[in-house]
Computed example of a mutant assay.
Amino acid sequence: MDSQNKAPSQRLALWTCVVVMAATVVAAGIAAAPRPAPRFHGTTYTEAAPAADFALTDHDGRAVSLRSYRGAPVLLFFGYTHCPDVCPLTLDRLTRALRSAGDVAKDVRILLVTLDPARDTPAALKTYAARFGPAVIGLTGDSAGLAKARAGYGAYVADVPAQPAAGHAHEGHGAPPASTVQALKTVHSGVVYGIDRRGNLQVVITEGAPVEQVADDVRTLARL
């Protein structure tokens, strides 16, 4: 009689064990399966890799690296405070995109790495960044540190002769003003590098991307 009572219990225990084992196998398979790549409007990579680190100084005079912002999504941009067009337009677009993205983007940081360290002191960067809101942080450094940062992201920058102002063109009546001879204009890319909370470079946002597309990419970046 006891053996008859034990049989159903043994079968139940066996089936319970099988179910638990099957569930464990399924869970392990789900965990091991590759996650679908995040969908961005900007340019993405086949596989996200750690973004290039740097050793710079923020606009409060503190030594910082990319690791200093670990845990927060980062939008990294190379520019300078005297830039007449690309920089203010890009920073305005990024800050509007953050507002459009909503609460999910509340801890996103916009890092402006200067291309003009001679004029972009920490104080000058702080004043400039304040025009666009608290999410913007200006970064500067010595020439070696800034060159390494640019190289790490493949940022395009070149100094080209500036066009003389109207009325200052040299027409053979004496030497042109010294400022015309030596003036250079810094030409640079307006792309923005989107880095996730773990420090991985996820997306390159193209220059002139519409605000709503940038906001979508910011939401995606912030949720990774």
Rank of each mutant, 00 (worst) to 15 (best):
S179W: 05
A55C: 10
P161S: 08
A33P: 12
V157G: 07
H82F: 11
A123V: 06
I137R: 14
A97Y: 05
V104Y: 01
P88T: 05
D216Y: 07
D107R: 00
P164F: 13
A48R: 10
V26P: 15
A118F: 13
L201D: 09
D85L: 01
G174R: 00
T114M: 10
A7K: 12
V113D: 12
V191P: 04
T44D: 01
R39V: 05
D216N: 15
D58F: 15
D159H: 02
A7V: 13
A166C: 09
A31S: 13
V191M: 13
F78H: 05
I137Y: 00
L14E: 03
V18P: 14
P134L: 00
A72K: 06
N200I: 00
Q163M: 04
K106A: 14
I195R: 00
L112G: 04
A49F: 03
Q202K: 06
A158M: 13
R96N: 13
A118H: 02
V18I: 15
K185F: 09
L94A: 07
S189I: 03
R70F: 06
L146M: 06
C17K: 04
G174D: 07
A52L: 13
A183P: 08
L98E: 11
L146A: 06
Y128F: 11
T114C: 06
A49T: 14
G29W: 11
A183Y: 05
G102E: 00
V214L: 07
P88A: 04
Q182W: 13
